[in-house]
Amino acid sequence: MLDFLLRVFGKDSGSSRNVAKERLRLVLVHDRADVSPQLLDDLKEDLIKVISNYMEIDEKALEVNLDTSDKTVALVANIPVLRMKRTGKRAEKIG
């Protein structure tokens, strides 16, 4: 009955409860993306380790950033490749 009334008065979807949830979700995406430079450096190091198994990269020119736009956060990495390794990690392991 209550649900019916809520729907009749159009309160369900536009309720302030849902507005609050959505606003919080957005604001927290930004808050949480505010990571420390230390964390980004650690991430960079790990990335280099993993990628180096497959290709030779220019470590100095490597860029890693969190890009926050309106509704999403993206991890954007620019990794210049110097040379591909022909074998890759799996071949190395077998060999």
Binding site: S15, S16, R17, A20, K21
Partner: peptide, 10 residues
């Protein structure tokens, strides 16, 4: 219940 406050689950 009225939709005017975030719930525990929210």
């Amino acid at each position: 219940k009225r939709g005017d406050m975030m719930s525990i689950d929210d």
